[in-house]
Each structure stands twice: as C-alpha cells, then as structure tokens.
Amino acid sequence: MTKFLLAVHVLAAIVAIGPVTVAASMFPPAARRALAAPDDPQAAQTLRLLHRICRVYAVVGVVVPVFGFGTARAMGVLGDTWLIVSIALTVLAALVLGALVLPGQEALVEGGSGGREATVRLAMLTGVFNLLWATVTVLMIVRPGSTTGA
C-alpha cells in the first residue's frame, strides 16, 4: 500500500504542481507583453489561459498533500522533522499561490492598474512560490535523517 500511495503522491505532484509552476512563471512576461500591446486580443487570451491553468491545477494540487499524508502515515514518518518542515513549506506555498499570485494574476487579467510594477511584483511572488516547491521537492528526496541512505 505504501508504494501505491507514494506513486500516486509523486504522480499527483508532477501532474498538478508542474503546470502551476510553469504557467505561473509564464504569466508575468505574458502580462508585460499584453500591457505593451493593449489592443492585441491574443495577448489577453494568453493571460486568461495561463490564469485558468493556474487556478484549475491549484485546486487539483490538493490531492498532493492528501496522498502525502497517507504515504507519511504508512511509512511511519509523520513526526519526522523533514516532513514537518515540508508540510509548513507546502502550506506557505499554498498561501502564496492562493492569497498573492492568483489574485495578482486576476487583477492583471481584468485590466487592473499597476502596470509594469504589478508584473514585477507578480514575478517575484511566483519565484517565491516556485522556490518553496523546489525546497519541498528536495526535502522529499533527501529526507534529512533518513536511514535509507538517500
């Protein structure tokens, strides 16, 4: 059962979190292009598509920690420091995405003010989000204190 839970957890992370990190990273440059060409319908359409990808996959991404908790329980590592840190970083990443990145994208999609400054702020927040996920990924692989030798 542990192998099944771990496989689903890893696949869900790849399928759900990967598209969010890529689409969120593509959004700020696309927003700058859209701001530079306000009459270009394709630029606006690209922003809407990237924002929709981020929203949808953010919701789908909920399965990652769900299967992660199941895997951790089956492996008996729920109290391990590396897992607790990973959980805290995952919560922080979700907050950055849900409270800062997605609303920032929404404002730009709807033509909100802020212009270039808004895209720079969004790029920074997206970078923080991606860095948090990269750190969680490293912790999941390296697992400090693990006896597996990884």
Rank of each mutant, 00 (worst) to 15 (best):
P38M: 11
T126P: 07
T2C: 06
D40G: 05
G68V: 05
R33W: 04
V22P: 00
N130G: 04
R116K: 12
P65D: 08
L6N: 06
A43Y: 09
T46K: 13
W133A: 10
A36T: 06
G149M: 08
L92H: 09
V109G: 03
A118W: 01
G115K: 04
G114N: 00
T21D: 07
V136M: 05
V142T: 07
Y57L: 02
G104L: 04
P41A: 10
P144G: 02
V66T: 12
Y57C: 05
R55K: 13
K3H: 13
T81S: 14
V62Q: 04
A94P: 03
H9P: 09
V66N: 02
L49H: 11
S113Q: 14
R116C: 05
P65Q: 10
V62W: 10
V142R: 01
G68K: 03
I17D: 02
G149L: 09
I87T: 12
W133E: 11
A16P: 00
T147E: 09
E106Y: 08
V109M: 01
V85C: 05
A24Q: 08
L97Q: 13
S146N: 12
V128K: 09
C54T: 15
G149E: 08
T21A: 14
A36G: 10
F27G: 00
G149N: 06
L35R: 15
L92P: 00
V56C: 03
A24K: 07
V85M: 01
A93K: 09
L131N: 11
A58K: 09
F67A: 03
E106W: 09
L49T: 11
L49D: 06
A43F: 07
E110M: 13
R116T: 15
I87G: 13
F4H: 10
A107E: 10
A123T: 01
I14Q: 04
A94L: 11
V10R: 02
G76V: 05
L47S: 07
A44N: 11
